[in-house]
Write a protein that binds this DNA or RNA. Sequence first.
DNA 1: GATGAATGAGCATTCATTCAT
DNA 2: TATGAATGAATGCTCATTCAT
Lengths: 231, 231, 231, 231
Amino acid sequence: MSLSKPIGERSERPGDDAGSAGKRERRKEARPGELLDAALDLFVEKGFAATRSEEVAARAGVSKGTLFLYFPSKEELFKAVVRENISGRFDEWNQEFEEYQGTSAEMVRYCIQVWWDRIGATRASGITKLMMSEARNFPELAAFYQQEVIRPGTQLIRRILQRGVESGEFRPNLDVDYSVYSVIAPMIFLIMAKHSLGACVPEDFAVDPQRYLQAQADMLVAGLCNREPLP
Amino acid sequence: MSLSKPIGERSERPGDDAGSAGKRERRKEARPGELLDAALDLFVEKGFAATRSEEVAARAGVSKGTLFLYFPSKEELFKAVVRENISGRFDEWNQEFEEYQGTSAEMVRYCIQVWWDRIGATRASGITKLMMSEARNFPELAAFYQQEVIRPGTQLIRRILQRGVESGEFRPNLDVDYSVYSVIAPMIFLIMAKHSLGACVPEDFAVDPQRYLQAQADMLVAGLCNREPLP
Amino acid sequence: MSLSKPIGERSERPGDDAGSAGKRERRKEARPGELLDAALDLFVEKGFAATRSEEVAARAGVSKGTLFLYFPSKEELFKAVVRENISGRFDEWNQEFEEYQGTSAEMVRYCIQVWWDRIGATRASGITKLMMSEARNFPELAAFYQQEVIRPGTQLIRRILQRGVESGEFRPNLDVDYSVYSVIAPMIFLIMAKHSLGACVPEDFAVDPQRYLQAQADMLVAGLCNREPLP
Amino acid sequence: MSLSKPIGERSERPGDDAGSAGKRERRKEARPGELLDAALDLFVEKGFAATRSEEVAARAGVSKGTLFLYFPSKEELFKAVVRENISGRFDEWNQEFEEYQGTSAEMVRYCIQVWWDRIGATRASGITKLMMSEARNFPELAAFYQQEVIRPGTQLIRRILQRGVESGEFRPNLDVDYSVYSVIAPMIFLIMAKHSLGACVPEDFAVDPQRYLQAQADMLVAGLCNREPLP
DNA sequence: GATGAATGAGCATTCATTCAT
DNA sequence: TATGAATGAATGCTCATTCAT
């Protein structure tokens, strides 16, 4: 089972490596990426409208003008940020689960952990926060996100649940279609805790991701595997 | 057990009745509420920064100047919107659950349904979306929300879970503190489905609230009551 | 020699007398005057543009609307303030000096003292400050002020100086026309000290009017009466 | 004795030469000065509140936004205008008078003429008008002006008068402290004639500066040197 | 290419003025 | 008459975008 490279991660921040000689020496090809990184951070942190273009440029270590050299407008920058961080990784992931050998419960646990490792814990999780916040202002992007992320993700999880029901591991009366949300909701919640309210009130709301995922996975597996009549 | 009136609902929108009409109507009492309603809608829909003051005024059926007659700035308007919709309802709810006679499983189901009736299905749900999107820009309000909503809500749910564990209904190995999120996460998710992505892509993502809540409550209760060792 | 009533003085401020019965009882006829008083104070203090109409109304103890009941616009209010406080008192004063019996030097001293008693020390002095500050924005008023105040005042002083030269009291080589300014300039300066910079830095710039007028009158008389060749 | 360059004068106005023209000229060095010049003119002409930011920018030949590129607010612009034109010139002047060889009467005449050449006749005179008009709205600046201009100027003149009294040239009974105003008042008056009322009613009030200064200097010297008992 | 000075449309806010009560 | 809620033109200021260097 190959662990594919997490998406949304870029190795180093610009300016961190004061290694090579003259100042301001930078590989051109890296510029757009650095801008996208900076933009992702700021859009997630402050929202699209409240993020100033100049700030993005500054964080990427370039001038205001340079930003518009690579992206014709702030809106296009936003779209690029979203697109850049939604690489269609689902084919690969589908295959991973196709070949998976364990039980369906293990598969659910694995799914959650893999999501955390590759998405939740990475910069890519910001995209989800971003879409949640800005969807209404970018319906076109929302549709794109729906198409590229929501639908395949939902389908992937749905197949896992279906497999569990068919194998007799999970409750036979499971509402497979809507139980998918029982897997997704905890993910969304964790992202929001990380990027939204949780980023503001550290002490009281601080969620320990691993313990959180453990509790959610336990609850989920217990709920899926409970064959007795529900009270 | 009295079903208290849902919060965040205002009976009629101004300007809907083209009856009496005539401009320069004097409604000092009604104005603030109408403005807050309009602002809530727009802030939820477009975000704080992307909402123009004049738009809020227009939706409330008044002129730009009138808005500033009641709220000294756009930011104060935002704060008022949040505060207005976070009336400490928790004392009442705590008492309700204190006096509740059914099983803990029933209590969990009731909790979810009551949340939906009084918050999720009402305009008040917009506040949650708002806080999720704008928390980073309004740390002061985020703290306020944490204090007034998150903390009491968490405590209320925690007590319910604790009760179930102590009565032997729920799994004894339940991580009570973090299982609270298993109740909250589906609520947050439903609100986001209603106000964010779900508001953009009706067909594919359309969630039927009742069926959704049914599935989530089932999963939750099944997970809570499953006494067998978890796979 | 009659001491005519100082101009620009109104006996009592509205609201100071809580004497008569019910509140808000006020003689209608007094309203415009109270508004003019309040306006004069504020225009002098902050200038025309920086004075808000509502503030004028509030200081006069009436509502915003009432102000516009008596004066069709802020600009008209300003004009009324200026006109109200420039009553053509010069005929009377001319006669006073026509009948004056003392020396010309005494006349000059008397002139200065009378100006202080009737203008400089009174609210009317604010008008001068006002014209200095706002003349460029109200050329029409400036012309009016020139006509009603500057010209007659200048002429009055000129006649006094002329009388002194003709009687042999004053230097024969006196530039009568321009020496008039030697009388006026100290007056203007004192008004500015009172209403402008002097009102800001109490300690350092505080000018004792009587000592100031004494010194200026001395210098003036000494300069007028010095018959020796000028060094 | 060197005649230092008059302050407050800038050689050419931008946009006067339609030669090179072309918009979007980059003149980072020159901009602030041009804006300060334009602002000084307009503030003197119309007052702070009545001057629109865009007007200042337009007169400086730039767009609205450029103004705020150099000055963060209209108020800061005002402060900069005042500060820019109050360069501590007094050290130089003090030394000049320290080394002066003529009589005290000549010194007084020289003082007046030098003031006119370096201040009165230049754009710097507008600052005085400005402070007179706006002191109450900018108490902080008024204090600054008091500190940087009023106090040193007063001291300089006071020393000259003191010198004359001690040398026996001037009246021994001179109220030195308050006679200083006999020198200052004519200056203030001339500035007001130039920038205020005098700028409105050219014909009647037009003051010929040189003749005016001659008359005032004559009167002053005559008053200072008159050793006879005052009538 | 890269820069950052310059632009100006856009928006928050103020306040003289109106007018229903 | 008097009020003060309501209005909207005017204005300070921001910031995405352009473009001369």
